[in-house]
């Protein structure tokens, strides 16, 4: 349990650092550490597959691309655009709304007194695969199609339009 609190503390600390740091590259790096601590959480929950996938996809791919773009943009503290007060107020209101929603959601959840152990191997690849390809086959396939569509969309966006050469 103490391990959980340690990891949770680190996760929250670095999540806050992500927000408060001025340098965008630092921000991304703190976010990477946050994702790493989340992977540790998954391992603590015995969800090894999820942990490794979180590791590969978020840390290994998405954040690298983030870093990629940020490094090329060369953002500095002085190039940060000035935000108007209106935007700030909007941001505060949006944040409060999210907070209220979360609070409401937590109030609804009834904490169970008994410790539910159930099947400890539920997070392993075999069980996950069985569940995904039997019970949740349709949502799984639909999300696959969604990803495919996104991929095709990205290719289309990135592709240059071939200009038609006018006949002289």
């Amino acid at each position: 349990m103490s391990l959980f609190y340690l990891v949770a503390f680190i996760a929250i600390f670095f999540a806050l650092m992500t927000i408060f740091t001025k340098n965008p590259v630092h921000s991304v790096l703190y976010l990477v550490v946050t994702f790493f601590t989340l992977s540790v959480h998954y391992i603590l929950l015995n969800a090894q597959f999820l942990a490794v996938v979180n590791f590969i996809v978020y840390m290994g791919a998405i954040m690298v691309l983030f870093l990629f773009v940020l490094m090329l943009l060369n953002l500095n503290e002085d190039t940060e655009p000035m935000k108007s007060n209106l935007v700030k107020i909007m941001g505060v209101i949006a944040g409060m709304c999210l907070f209220a929603t979360l609070l409401g959601a937590f109030r609804v959840i009834e904490p169970s007194n008994e410790l539910v152990t159930g099947n400890t191997e539920i997070g392993l690849v075999k069980h996950l695969g069985n569940v995904l390809f039997n019970e949740f086959l349709l949502p799984f396939e639909i999300s696959a199609i969604l990803l495919l569509i996104a991929m095709i969309g990205a290719v289309l966006l990135a592709k240059k339009e071939v200009k038609e050469i006018k006949k002289a």
Partner: peptide
């Protein structure tokens, strides 16, 4: 997958 993650 672990190796794959570390490589990434």
């Amino acid at each position: 997958l672990y190796i794959f993650g570390v490589v990434a």
